[in-house]
């Protein structure tokens, strides 16, 4: 149920990072998804794909979800230009 709001948080963080590093475009985003996080990977991916189209900087960003142990959702790495 809250995958969309988490995807929204992620996009907010990506826009901040892009501004910090004066990037024009986010290319690839790697997120570690804990197996006990109660977050549905497909829904999170869907939320990201829909919401990322709302701004130019993230429009073509590719989200890569890496399954990990634990219950957290961690923004690991961002590739930008």
């Amino acid at each position: 149920m809250h995958e969309f709001s988490l995807a929204q948080n992620l996009l907010g963080q990506l826009l901040e990072l892009a501004a910090q590093h004066q990037a024009r475009k986010i290319i690839r985003v790697e997120v570690q998804l804990g197996e006990s996080s109660n977050i549905v990977a497909d829904s999170f991916q869907f939320g990201f794909d829909v919401l990322s189209k709302e701004n130019e900087i993230c429009r073509s960003a590719k989200l890569v979800l890496q399954p990990t142990a634990g219950n957290d959702l961690i923004l690991a790495q961002v590739e930008m230009e």
């Binding site: 963080q13 590093h21 957290d72 959702l73 961690i74 923004l75 961002v78 590739e79 930008m80 230009e81």
Partner: peptide, 19 residues
């Protein structure tokens, strides 16, 4: 080329639950 020189990989490692 621009894409080679300006591409950056930023290591973040921050929880999306951090806030």
């Amino acid at each position: 080329t621009k894409s080679d020189s300006e591409k950056k990989i930023i290591e973040v490692h921050e929880s999306l639950f951090a806030a």
